[in-house]
């Protein structure tokens, strides 16, 4: 049988292709943000769109996040489907009122009469010495607040499919992409930032986690970069005779509880890994889920690995010390299986 030739794309091109296909399909879709036009987005998420659609549908804005995210709300209430880019998630501080007090709450406060089909697209993640104000993921900050779907895809395939889902969703969706998984020439070159992406439009559903590696001895839950770290750790664990099951969470809201609970029924051990801060975060939420609904399936207490509760430091040894990586996951997993 002839093997189908697979087309490979980087993460950023997968996102841009998703947006392009939806803009071709629906004239109400448009993009707005800082440097999304001729530059193509600082992390390439709108690459080529300005050249195809022009300045009326790919709109460079002033550095006025409150005004342009608020304008996305106003335009969405009028039936448009805006995609707005918050360049770094860290910048949420200058515009969070529009995000959580308005975008997230207006549909609810209106009793469902006002729909806000907005995609708030934003770059997350560290590991390249960009320091405390440009390296956070802040997954839990957004996932904590009701009224927004929050997704964080890990592969080019999922970035495209989940972006199409997000654009077609009638609810506000916070779409987080990881900078180092965009496959940009000026960052670390990771194999994970390139992958097979079909040319046509397709959907990856929001709210569904994915078992990216099957195993029987331990469940490792990751998201975005930590999923890739977990897969690398799983290879090393296999050399020690341990079969790790790795779950890529993909969506924080809605959270796919079932996939996690099914997995711990099988493996009886749970390690949760996050590139966000440890306390009050995603790892705590999943540990609570396991405690509330899966406690009797566990043979050992849940372990968590995340950024200890300090801002992301600049200097390379300091930053590498606080970020999770494959080695740290391997060691945590070894401790857990030996308990």
């Amino acid at each position: 049988m002839q093997k189908t030739k697979q087309r490979l794309l980087t993460g950023n091109k997968a996102i841009a292709e998703a947006i392009r296909l939806e803009m071709e399909r629906d004239p109400n879709v448009f993009v707005m943000g800082e440097d999304v036009g001729v530059y193509g987005g600082i992390f390439g998420a709108t690459e080529g769109l300005f050249q195809q659609f022009g300045p009326k549908r790919v709109i460079d804005t002033p550095i006025s996040e409150t005004a342009f995210i608020g304008a996305a709300i106003g335009a969405a209430a009028e039936g448009m489907r805006p995609i707005v880019e918050l360049m770094f998630v860290d910048f949420f501080g200058v515009c969070m009122d529009q995000i959580y007090n308005h975008m997230a709450k207006i549909p609810y406060m209106s009793g469902g009469r006002v729909k806000l089909p907005i995609v708030l697209m934003t770059a997350v993640g560290g590991g390249y010495s960009d320091a405390a104000q440009h390296s956070q993921t802040l997954y839990a900050t957004f996932a904590h607040l009701p009224g927004m779907k929050v997704v964080a895809p890990s592969t080019p395939y999922d970035l495209k499919g989940m972006m199409i889902s997000a654009i077609r969703d009638d609810n506000p969706v916070v779409f987080m992409f990881h900078k180092t998984l965009q496959g940009l020439g000026w960052m670390d070159q990771l194999d994970a930032s390139v992958g097979h992406v079909p040319e046509e439009a397709y959907i990856v559903p929001i709210g569904k986690a994915k078992v990216v590696r099957e195993g029987t001895d331990i469940t490792i839950v990751g998201i975005q970069m930590t999923t890739h770290h977990a897969l690398e750790a799983a290879k090393k664990l296999e050399q020690h005779g341990i079969q790790a099951e790795v779950i890529d969470l993909r969506s924080l809201v809605p959270l796919d509880r079932e996939t996690i609970l099914q997995s711990i029924k099988k493996t009886h051990r749970l390690l949760v890994v996050d590139e966000d801060y440890l306390s009050y975060g995603m790892t705590a939420e999943i540990a609570a889920l396991a405690a509330e609904e899966g406690l009797y399936d566990l043979d050992a207490p849940v372990r968590r690995l995340a950024v200890p509760d300090v801002p992301i430091p600049y200097s390379r040894p300091l930053e590498q010390f606080v970020l999770p990586n494959a080695d740290k996951i391997f060691h945590e997993a070894m401790k857990l299986v030996n308990e």
Binding site: F30, K56, T66, A67, F68, I69, G70, A71, A72, I73, G74, A75, A76, A77, E78, G79, M80, P82, D97, Q98, N101, H102, I106, S110, V114
Partner: peptide, 22 residues
């Protein structure tokens, strides 16, 4: 529409004006 955060409705009107023009 209305809201309880001072000044926050202005960007919403801005977006409606943008949509009207588009």
């Amino acid at each position: 529409s209305c809201g309880g955060i001072v000044g926050a409705g202005i960007p919403h009107a801005l977006g409606a004006a943008l949509a009207a023009k588009k």
